[in-house]
Amino acid sequence: MFMENGKNRKSSDRPIRVLLAKPAIDGHDRGVFVLARAFRDAGMEVIYPGLLPTPEEIVDIAVDEDVDVIAISLLNSSHMAVFRKLMALLRKRKATGIAVVGGGIIPEDDKPELERMGVTGNYGPGTPMSEIIAHIRKRAAQARAAKWKGR
């Protein structure tokens, strides 16, 4: 956390940057607020775009801000439609190096399909924050490694 400004700094030293969002028509933001603080307390940089962002807006922000991970909270059964759109948009923008992690109210039956699409985590209520943070760190490290390999 206490790094000299930009001097000899490797990209991998940069704090993990997470875009945390609720891209559905839904204002129940308790979960994202709790996670935002937990991620910050774990040394990550968190970007929260406010309520009701569209998948298009999320992908724009993710690319512009060069985030490692997009973390999505969905509680209102729209997860399949939203993730399909989000993943397609990431492909279109050639930004598949950004990891996508999900959580909220996601039925067991939908999880295999989401995993196939590349959406991991898919945590339900009551998951310890430490577990989610560890997963974000893992996905961020993978995303960075893939990015370096690709260059």
Binding site: A24, S77, S78, A81
Partner: peptide
């Protein structure tokens, strides 16, 4: 377009 996937869900 925004309502897609959310009609009648909740």
């Amino acid at each position: 377009d925004r309502a897609h996937g959310e009609i009648g869900k909740c």
